[in-house]
């Protein structure tokens, strides 16, 4: 993108000092070096190094596990199942509330000049359609069919919300957790992910997670999994926006769920 490339060049030029924000750069003498010099002079007035009272204290013993678990990837196993990969084994998730998780269809806008870049979250159900073919009314099985039998046939309808129904530890690998969904993912949702219609937009399916409280995901040492864009979990609405920021920059980590099912 033209705007993104130019923006990076401008920030690099500012960082290098080639470009300045204000019209008047700082005066040559108006720097912090004076105070640094004064501080240096003060320290050089001493007669030598400070006396020591003995050998230094031994270093503290190495701590135990101080690194919280991290989410590495989310993959689709089948239309009803997601698999979460963690950086280390996690404790039992039996008591973890599935409501801590929420899926979003995140739309990133990469434009610079035609609007603000940002990330716009929507409930995936709005893009998840199933084909419904109502049975023909009685009396339409004969030939020729009466005119009221030509009622339109099949149509696509929106599915119920795609929510996390339950979660389980993987039965072999302790670094994996499996999520089951209330509604299956449909090809229409994958089509949005795989083929955005406009080059300044990108769509990803993303999982959000809210931490805190007692029943949360932890590693074996009890350290909790950090939240992942949890505003979407705590928000009851079907819409949420992160305007005026690079697309998907509010996801930390950014783990789009690839669709390889259809």
């Amino acid at each position: 993108m033209l705007g993104l490339r130019f923006s990076r060049l401008v920030h690099a030029a500012i960082a290098s000092g080639a470009l300045v924000l204000g019209a008047c750069p700082a005066e040559p003498g108006d720097t912090d070096s004076d105070s640094d010099t004064a501080a240096t002079e003060m320290t050089t007035d001493t007669d030598g190094p400070l006396p020591t009272t003995g050998p230094p204290d031994p270093p503290p013993p190495p701590p135990g596990d101080i690194t919280p678990p991290g989410l590495q990837a989310v993959t689709m196993i089948d239309p009803f199942t997601l698999q979460l990969s963690f950086t280390e084994p996690v404790a039992s998730v039996e008591t973890v509330n599935p409501k801590r998780f929420r899926l979003s269809l995140a739309r990133g806008y990469f434009g610079t000049y035609g609007g603000q870049p940002g990330t716009y979250l929507r409930s995936p159900q709005y893009y998840n359609f199933t084909e419904y073919c109502p049975p023909p009314p009685p009396g339409c099985y004969y030939d020729p069919q009466p005119y009221y039998c030509y009622y339109g046939g099949c149509y696509y309808q929106q599915t119920p919300p795609i929510e996390v129904a339950d979660l389980f530890n993987h039965y072999i690998d302790p670094t994996l957790v499996v999520l089951s969904l209330t509604t299956p993912i449909q090809p229409s949702l994958c089509n949005i992910l795989n083929a955005p219609e406009d080059p300044v937009f990108d769509f990803v399916l993303h999982l959000h997670y809210a931490s805190g409280g007692l029943s949360q995901i932890t590693d074996l040492a009890g350290l909790p999994l950090p939240p992942l864009s949890d505003a979407w979990v705590k928000n009851d609405s079907n819409y949420y926006n992160y305007p005026n920021s690079p697309p998907f920059s509010n996801f930390n980590p950014f783990l789009p769920i690839p669709c390889t099912l259809f």
């Binding site: 993108m1 033209l2 705007g3 990469f110 434009g111 610079t112 000049y113 035609g114 609007g115 080059p199 300044v200």
Partner: peptide, 9 residues
């Protein structure tokens, strides 16, 4: 023009 710049590539 702004929209076209965003699609410039």
């Amino acid at each position: 023009i702004a929209r076209a710049m965003d699609r410039w590539g």
